[in-house]
Computed example of a mutant assay.
Amino acid sequence: MDGAFQACRRNPAATFGTAIIIQAVIAVLSVVFGQSLIGSLEVLDTQAELTDAQAISFGASVLTGGTVLTIISAIGILAMQGLLVIPVARAILNLKTGLGQTWRLAKGSYLRLAGMALLMLAASIAGLAAFVFAVVFVIEFLGTSGVVLTVLGVLAVIAVFAWLTVKLALAPAALVLEPRGIFAAVGRSWSLTRGNWWRTFGILILTSIIVSIIVSVISTPITMLVTLFASFGSGDAAGDDLSTILPVLVLTTAISAFFGAIGYAFQAAVTSLLYVDLRMRREGFDVVLMREQEHAASGDPDDVPGRGGHGQFPVPPGPWPGGRAAGSR
């Protein structure tokens, strides 16, 4: 965690800036969707009675918009995890990375990151649909006695989801840094976490808890104050005019997106360092980093550690080279 913090502090534009840009895009789309939803509610409110066609149309709009936002959010979060491995890896060699440089060095990985996000999202939806079908089937044939099996099934699904999340957590980093294809990156993450699942799980879950608490403690009071002042300013009209909700929606979404981006950036940095650390433990990747650090000062300013077929060295891992960012091991 200290290494992730140092890497983010050393490259604030590349880490926090990238996260804020991605979260800003998601926030803008969320506001646009919220505005269209408010407009639909205002139209429906003027109707004396809601027809079946209107109800179906409104439900379809909500479902479509929610699905699009979910897909975009999944792509954005996965892209963030892949992009931020570049400034974190370069920070290990004491190399600073700019915002534009990060995106330039990740050029060629955008479509593969989007494809990976869609693949994982589709697999999650298929798994959830299969589980719901199984629950309906069990309750239909076993009645009330199937409730016990349903509870056990829910616990099993949670356990499987946690296991798969950890096994696939390093795939975006492998896809961008090495670089690899979608399925090759998935296999890479799977092999790197073999024998290190509990350690990886502990670090990721602890980081997630800490970031969630800090972000909530900071953003929730600010959001509540914004909502409170907006309610005082709108007077009694707020209850009659749904359009008065839009400014509050914009402000609260912007606040949540900003602090959420900071948290996501830190989590992505921790995941990136985990990826580098596991490569060190399994492949002697630290030897590659030592070799590249010797030439970093006089070499290519756009050098990315580990690219160009490096990293497959069957030697025992050594200390992290160079820099405060590398001291987390």
Results as ranks from 00 to 15, higher is better:
102 T>I: 01
103 W>M: 07
104 R>Y: 02
104 R>C: 02
105 L>Q: 15
106 A>P: 14
107 K>C: 06
107 K>A: 10
109 S>H: 01
109 S>E: 03
109 S>A: 14
111 L>V: 10
111 L>W: 12
112 R>L: 01
112 R>E: 07
113 L>S: 08
113 L>N: 12
113 L>T: 08
113 L>K: 00
114 A>L: 03
114 A>T: 14
114 A>E: 10
115 G>V: 04
115 G>L: 04
115 G>Q: 03
116 M>I: 04
116 M>K: 01
116 M>Y: 12
116 M>T: 13
116 M>A: 12
117 A>G: 09
117 A>Y: 07
117 A>N: 04
118 L>Q: 03
118 L>V: 07
118 L>S: 11
118 L>K: 05
119 L>V: 09
119 L>W: 03
119 L>S: 10
120 M>S: 06
120 M>I: 07
120 M>N: 12
121 L>I: 05
122 A>N: 01
123 A>I: 04
123 A>P: 10
125 I>N: 04
125 I>F: 15
125 I>G: 03
126 A>V: 07
127 G>R: 00
128 L>A: 11
128 L>Y: 13
128 L>M: 11
129 A>N: 10
130 A>C: 04
130 A>N: 08
130 A>V: 11
131 F>Y: 13
133 F>D: 15
133 F>P: 06
134 A>E: 11
136 V>R: 00
136 V>T: 10
136 V>M: 10
138 V>H: 02
139 I>E: 06
140 E>W: 14
142 L>T: 08
142 L>F: 09
142 L>C: 04
142 L>Y: 10
142 L>N: 13
143 G>I: 00
143 G>N: 04
144 T>I: 02
145 S>W: 09
146 G>R: 03
147 V>R: 00
147 V>L: 15
147 V>T: 08
149 L>M: 11
150 T>M: 11
151 V>F: 15
153 G>L: 01
154 V>H: 01
154 V>D: 05
155 L>C: 07
155 L>V: 13
157 V>T: 05
158 I>C: 13
158 I>P: 15
159 A>N: 13
159 A>S: 15
160 V>N: 11
160 V>F: 15
160 V>T: 09
160 V>S: 11
160 V>P: 08
161 F>S: 13
161 F>V: 06
162 A>T: 06
163 W>Y: 14
163 W>L: 12
164 L>Q: 03
166 V>M: 08
166 V>C: 13
167 K>F: 09
167 K>I: 05
168 L>V: 13
170 L>A: 05
172 P>D: 00
173 A>I: 07
174 A>Q: 03
175 L>H: 08
177 L>R: 01
177 L>T: 00
177 L>M: 07
177 L>F: 00
177 L>C: 00
178 E>I: 00
179 P>H: 01
179 P>D: 02
180 R>W: 01
181 G>E: 04
183 F>A: 06
184 A>S: 12
184 A>E: 15
185 A>K: 03
185 A>Y: 12
186 V>C: 12
186 V>G: 05
186 V>S: 08
187 G>Y: 09
187 G>M: 03
188 R>F: 10
189 S>D: 14
190 W>D: 12
